[in-house]
Structure formats: structure tokens, C-alpha cells
Simulated assay, not measured.
Amino acid sequence: MRGQPTHRISKKALSVWHLKGVISTGLLLIIPAALFFFSYRLQFPLFYVWISGILVAGYGLWNIVVLPKIRWSMWRYEVYDKEIELLRGVFIIRHTLIPMTRVQHVDTEQGPIYKKYGLTAVTISTAAGVHEIPALSEAVGSRLRDKIAYLAGTEESDE
């Protein structure tokens, strides 16, 4: 029996997940702000403002500080000749084996936040769905995409 996958995603994933946590928490701050506004306009208790503010602060603390570290420490992947192994999760640990014979195509994706940090995600498409290896450096992502495409026999002749 082999051990767990050894390759990690980029440490820059922490910065990306911190930023995404800040953005989502910032958007949620609209709720206590709206409740504060309505508490004066409609004369309902400030208790709701305080409760919503505490809940948003707790969510922000979890999503900005704690969750990214746990996600990064759990994420592992390995590419073998006949399969791809993914290990990830926080409360529920998902251990996925993708046979190379099932890979239909493989892509790299890079949104604006990933581009800012020089990262890319590799997506592996099978008939059962799409699997993603997030937050890889651009060089590692390109090499991994090409390696998987070669091993799966899906590589394009001129690209």
C-alpha cells in the first residue's frame, strides 16, 4: 500500500484564500450595516445589529485566518502513470483516484486573482465530472497539464 500523495499546492494559495475570505466577509458586512440603518428608521432593537455583527466577525475570523491554513495543509496530489490521486478537505476528507483512461481532457485556468499571484488551476475532465488542482505556480501547472495530457493520451498535436 502506498502512502499519501506528496505534492502540495503553492503556498501562495494562502494569500488567495485570505483575499477571498476578506472579500466575502466584506460583502457580508452589508447585513449588519443594513440592520443598523433600519434600526433607526424602523425603530427595532440594536440587539439584531450586534448579533449579526458578531456572526459576521466570527465568519470572517474563520474564513480569513483559520480555514486557509487547514485547506492548504490538507491539499495533496500525485500523478502516476495510470492514475491521478487527490487528497483534500477540512471536515470531510476527500481522497480521489482518477484513472488516466477516464481523463477526457485537461485544462489550466487563471482568473484575475490567480493571475495577480502567478498561479493557475489544473482542471481534469472525466465523464463523471471535473476535478481541480488549485493554486499551482504557472510553470508547475503547465508542466502538470502537459504530463497528464501525455499520460492520458489526450495531448493535442499542435498547440
Rank of each mutant, 00 (worst) to 15 (best):
S39P: 03
L87P: 01
V66M: 04
I64A: 05
T25D: 08
L46E: 10
P5L: 11
S73T: 09
V56W: 02
Q4W: 11
S73I: 03
V16T: 12
G60E: 09
G58V: 04
L14P: 07
V22K: 01
L144C: 08
T126E: 11
K20I: 10
E132F: 00
Q43T: 06
V140Q: 11
R8S: 14
K82W: 10
G89H: 03
L61S: 03
Q110I: 02
I93Y: 05
L67Y: 06
L42V: 02
Y117S: 01
I30L: 15
G3A: 15
R41H: 09
W72A: 02
E78C: 07
G3M: 09
K69N: 13
G53W: 06
G53K: 01
L151K: 14
E83S: 15
F36C: 04
L19Q: 02
V16S: 12
G89E: 08
I23Y: 12
K69F: 07
K20W: 07
K82G: 15
G53E: 02
S157R: 13
G60F: 08
Y150I: 07
L119I: 08
T101P: 04
Q4G: 13
L27E: 06
I92P: 02
M1P: 14
W50G: 11
A135D: 09
L86K: 11
A139Q: 15
L61Y: 11
I30N: 06
I70G: 04
V49E: 08
P112L: 10
L151A: 14
M100C: 09
V103Q: 04
H131C: 05
Q104F: 00
A34I: 09
S24G: 08
S52W: 04
M74K: 12
S137G: 07
V106D: 07
I31T: 11
W17V: 00
E138R: 09
G26Y: 09
R102L: 05
P5H: 09
L46F: 10
L67E: 05
G118R: 01
I31W: 06
L119W: 12
H131I: 04
F38V: 03
I31A: 10
Y40I: 00
W75N: 12
D81W: 08
T6G: 14
S52I: 01
T96K: 08
A128M: 08
P5I: 10
V103W: 13
